[in-house]
Each structure stands twice: as structure tokens, then as C-alpha cells.
Simulated scan of single mutants.
Amino acid sequence: MKKSKLIVIALTLVALFTFSTITSEASTSKVMWGKTELKKGQIGKVTILKDTPLLHIGKDPSVDGGAVRALKPGEEYRVYSTKTPEGYAPMYNLGGEYYVLQNSKLNGVNVKYETPSKAKLALLEDSSAKVMWGKTELKVGQIGKVTLFADVSTFNADGTSRKEVLPAGGEYRVYTFVLDNHGGGYGLGGGLFVNMDGALKYETPSKSKLALLNK
């Protein structure tokens, strides 16, 4: 009887030790950067210096845009891209359709923008498994991808052309989009855009892929 009790206690201790080890490993897999966790697809972060409006800008910026609430000094938010919606000043994208204005002489200095160090990015790369989607890795902040059927020219968010020509057959992550009188463009990151009406196919990730990414 005593022996069986000892076995039960021993197994319980092993289970508790295993659980605590797993929990510890799960918690250390996060790469913290200041107050927030660094995420894949994140290009930087903003620290709020003064009360700053959080803006929601939808698919049609001319009719679907406005302040949601005020962000408070000391708060930190991930930045996934930069964008200049039609009729607006340059902004930082905080995920989805939410933005804050970049600093300027007109708007004032309301936020501090920083980019992650190489050391932080290396830790992030080691901390999580890749989720492949076709030829490319699915990234946090990515809203879709384009597959090119022919060589495609590129342009900036303001419509000015760029030298880069993307080759046929390539797959590229899409992080944002712009709409204009010519049909608009998909933002591939780094201020690089391709025409929505070009020789390409646009797709959004499945719920199962997103679930794997957000594990």
C-alpha cells in the first residue's frame, strides 16, 4: 500500500515537473520588445508620447475613416506597414485597418517610431515554426498574396513608378492596398505596390493557415 502511494506521488511529481517545463518553454518562446511581444511581419513599433487619435480607415478612405479613441502616453503598439491613404498624411499601420499619423511639422511629434534590432529579429526567427503557404512563408500582418502570370511593373503608394519589375511565376506577400481611379494596387511591403488589375491572382489565407500562424 505504501509502495503504491509512493508510485502515485512520484508520477504526480513527474507530471508537475513536465507541465512546468512545458509552460516555461512556452513562455520563453515569446520575444518581448519593451512592453509588447515582437511578432512576425512587424516592421517596428510606436511609443505614444502625447494623446494621439487611433484612426480606422477602411477600403474607401474618402468615406470610411475617423478617430476611434485616443491612445495614451507610454503605450506601445506594433507597426506592420506604412501607408498614405488617399486624402491623408503618411501613417503607421497598427494592424488591420487601424492607423496613427506619422510625425510631421503639421501634425507634431506625437509618437516615437523604432525598428527591431537584428538580435531581436534573430530570436524571433528561432522562436517559431514557419507556416508555408505555397512558395512563401505566411507572416503576421499579411492579408494575402499575389501570384504573377507575367512580368509586372511596380510603383509607389503615390502612383509614381519604380524600377523594380517582378518576374512571372513569383508569389509575393500582400500587407495592404490602395484604391484610386485606376483600380488601385496591392502593397507588398517596403512601399512597393503592384496594380490590382495586372496579370496576377490575389488570394487570402485560409482560416486553418491563420490558426497555425497564431498558435
Rank of each mutant, 00 (worst) to 15 (best):
N214R: 10
L38N: 13
A15R: 08
V165D: 07
E97W: 05
S208E: 15
S104K: 05
F155D: 03
E171N: 08
Y113F: 15
N107I: 15
T176C: 07
A67D: 07
T115D: 09
K30C: 06
V31C: 08
L148K: 02
E97V: 11
Y113S: 03
K135N: 08
V68S: 06
I9H: 05
G41R: 03
S81Y: 13
S127I: 02
M91C: 15
Q42A: 13
Y202H: 02
T18A: 15
K3R: 15
Y186K: 01
P73I: 02
V111G: 01
Y77C: 07
K72L: 14
E114T: 13
Y80I: 03
L54E: 05
Q142L: 06
V111W: 00
V79K: 01
V178G: 04
T82I: 08
L11W: 12
D51W: 00
A168C: 06
G34T: 01
S4D: 14
F155I: 03
S153D: 14
M1T: 02
N107T: 15
D180L: 09
V165W: 09
K105V: 07
K112Q: 12
T147H: 05
G41L: 04
Q102A: 10
D64R: 08
K130R: 13
E86P: 00
V140G: 13
V68Q: 10
L55W: 05
G87P: 07
M32Q: 15
L192A: 01
A67K: 10
A15E: 09
L16V: 03
L121T: 11
G190M: 00
G108V: 07
S104V: 05
V165E: 08
L124H: 03
V140H: 13
L94A: 01
G170L: 00
H56S: 11
L94F: 02
Q142H: 11
G65K: 12
G96A: 12
L192N: 06
K72Y: 10
N214D: 12
K30E: 09
I143G: 01
P167A: 03
K3M: 11
S206P: 04
N93D: 10
G108S: 05
G134R: 14
K145N: 00
